[in-house]
């Protein structure tokens, strides 16, 4: 896997695991040991999706109006 910020290459386990973006998806936050950037990583395919700065995380878990989970 290659860090999109600095080009560092290592297997996925070489990136420090931080925490999941959401437990029910295959997206987790990992940290590049070389440049220390936070990366959102597709765990299944072992690919970095994006570098994640504050406020840019693909979090949230919602549906319906204004991202609400509606009664059903």
């Amino acid at each position: 896997m290659q860090c999109m910020e600095c080009g560092f290459e290592a297997p996925i386990s070489g990136y420090r695991y931080l925490y999941n973006a959401r437990i029910d998806a295959s997206v987790a936050m990992r940290q590049c040991p070389a440049c220390q950037a936070w990366l959102a990583v597709d765990q299944l395919n072992e690919k970095p999706l994006q570098a994640v700065g504050p406020g840019q995380a693909p979090w949230g878990k919602s549906a319906g109006i204004e991202n609400l989970a509606e009664d059903r």
Partner: peptide, 27 residues
């Protein structure tokens, strides 16, 4: 339950896991 070492644990008490309460507030 699918968590890994490092993942935040649920936010507590009897609150459902974040994002896992998919059937709305009455449920």
């Amino acid at each position: 339950n699918g968590r890994r070492l490092g993942d935040a644990l649920y936010d507590g008490g009897i609150s459902p896991g974040p994002g896992l309460d998919k059937k709305g507030p009455t449920a």
